[in-house]
């Protein structure tokens, strides 16, 4: 069977397998967005316009990143534990198609939650965002990178370790990443780390496209994300092709 029909069949397989997960994914993302847009402002005595913009653009970024880094490894780890990862690998289908189909379904699953996060932020703070059309590649690349990294983590680490690693990453993304606040508030050593990790770049491309009037859109961030997406995709693919 040629590649395209196989890819479409795998998408259908994954979509049906994960349809029960979709409402849960939306609820979890909505709660994240609610926590950031409604909960975080309680930390500030008063909200200046810049803080508001960081919260409104940080909410979709955090929902997207945590879903990719947390839910993806958990689902891959589960597939490995229950044997479906191996079973799918035993089918006469190029293995890269499994990976592409998984990521495609993933992109679609996270979309409603992200849309909700954007709408909630603009409504709560009465913002009038002049969203750039570049939001589409920014969302796509952010989601793809986060999910690929999650996939790679779950491919390389044993299932238990992958699940723990994903929890650690949530804390890192929520607390120590410049998504809801400007990078200049980070201590110097963490600034250096974030210069090479993809999380800050994810925040930058989403901020720069959601509120282009207020934030720059550095091309370097797109490049860094592209490199992370390719690298982690390559790792996940390589593990999928490997014979133990």
């Amino acid at each position: 069977m040629s590649a395209l029909p196989s890819y479409l069949l795998l998408i259908r397989w994954n979509a049906l397998r994960m349809k029960g997960f979709l409402p849960l994914a939306i609820v979890v993302q909505a709660l994240f967005a609610f926590g950031i847009v409604v909960g975080y402002p309680l930390l500030f005595p008063e909200l200046d316009p810049r803080t508001v913009l960081f919260l409104a653009t940080g909410a979709p970024a955090i929902t997207l990143i945590t879903m990719g880094l947390v839910a993806t490894p958990q689902m891959v780890a589960q597939a490995r534990t229950e044997g479906s990862y191996e079973y799918m690998r035993s089918l006469p289908v190029p293995r890269i198609l499994h990976l592409l189909a998984d990521l495609t379904v993933w992109l679609v699953i996270v979309l409603p939650g992200v849309a909700f996060a954007i709408l909630l932020g603009t409504w709560r703070f009465s913002l009038d965002l002049q969203v750039s059309p570049l939001i589409i590649p920014a969302l796509g690349l952010t989601s793809l990178t986060a999910a690929s990294i999650g996939y790679a983590i779950a491919s390389v680490l044993p299932p238990m370790a992958a699940n723990m690693m994903s929890q650690v990453l949530v804390v890192f993304v929520l607390m120590f990443s410049p998504l809801n606040f400007p990078p200049d508030r980070l201590p110097g050593w963490l600034t250096g780390i974030h210069a090479v990790l993809p999380v800050q770049a994810m925040g930058e491309v989403l901020r720069g496209t959601l509120a282009p009037a207020s934030f720059p859109l550095p091309a370097g961030a797109f490049l860094l994300l592209g490199a992370w997406a390719l690298g982690s995709f390559g790792v996940a693919w390589r593990v999928m092709e490997r014979r133990g």
Partner: peptide
């Protein structure tokens, strides 16, 4: 073609769908 020892979970799929899709993926 293989039937693995661990029963494959097909939550979300009906037997009709699962068997048909695997048959078509097998060509």
């Amino acid at each position: 073609s293989i039937q693995p020892q661990a029963t494959l979970p097909i939550n979300g799929l009906t037997p009709n769908q699962a068997v048909e899709m695997i048959g078509r993926l097998r060509g």
